[in-house]
Amino acid sequence: MADQLTEEQIAEFKEAFSLFDKDGDGTITTKELGTVMRSLGQNPTEAELQDMINEVDADGNGTIDFPEFLTMMARKMKDTDSEEEIREAFRVFDKDGNGYISAAELRHVMTNLGEKLTDEEVDEMIREADIDGDGQVNYEEFVQMMTAK
């Protein structure tokens, strides 16, 4: 299944994987998964984290390695993001709930994920998604960005 991913997608997933893999040992533990999910405003229980890991832990060693992570991402993409997942993601970014993602809100979430971005990089990300040019990202623009192939 992971063989249907483009090189660009694999590179993006590698970057995402390293955000989860806090200690850089090449595997994601339940603790690391929990840290990232909490930084995104989720509050999973230990059991939920274990279930999430077990779902993709092909070799049964209790952690997720990069090939397992790729399989999980490929699977998720095949079920292409349901509207509800996209709306949920939008809410994570839209901290003040005004229906727009500002540069400050984007920077806040990315920083929580451990991504240190310059102001230019954040502005560039907003510009790429900002179709109507108002300097922020509304829900429609967010959907376009998330579903762009």
Rank of each mutant, 00 (worst) to 15 (best):
S102C: 14
L5R: 07
T27W: 05
E68G: 12
Q9S: 08
E140T: 06
G60N: 14
F93L: 11
A47M: 15
T71H: 06
E120A: 14
E83W: 11
F93G: 06
I126A: 05
K14P: 01
F66Y: 12
Q136T: 08
M145S: 05
Q50H: 11
E120L: 09
A16D: 05
M77G: 09
Q144H: 09
L40W: 04
N138V: 12
D65H: 03
D94K: 01
V137A: 11
I64V: 13
G114E: 05
E68F: 01
T63W: 05
E15K: 08
A11R: 01
D81S: 00
F20E: 04
G135Q: 03
D57I: 03
M110S: 04
G41Y: 00
T118M: 09
Y100S: 07
K116T: 13
F17L: 12
L33D: 00
A89L: 04
A47S: 12
A89N: 02
L5Q: 08
D51S: 10
D94L: 09
E7W: 15
V56P: 02
G34I: 02
F13Y: 13
D23P: 04
I101R: 00
D119H: 08
L5V: 09
D3N: 09
K116H: 15
T27Y: 03
M37T: 11
V36G: 08
T35W: 11
Q136G: 01
N98G: 11
F13P: 00
D123N: 12
V122M: 14
K22Q: 12
S102D: 07
E48I: 08
A104P: 13
T71G: 07
M110G: 05
F93I: 03
F69V: 08
V92A: 12
T6L: 08
K95A: 00
V109R: 10
Q42K: 05
D79Q: 07
D132G: 13
M146K: 05
G135C: 12
E85T: 11
D123V: 07
E128M: 15
Q144D: 05
E84G: 12
E7D: 14
L106Q: 04
D94M: 03
Q4R: 12
E46I: 14
A47P: 07
M52I: 11
L70H: 01
G24V: 11
K31Y: 09
A103G: 10
T118V: 11
M52N: 14
D134Q: 08
D81T: 08
A104F: 02
T63K: 08
D23T: 00
I64Y: 13
K76N: 07
N112S: 13
D134G: 11
F17R: 00
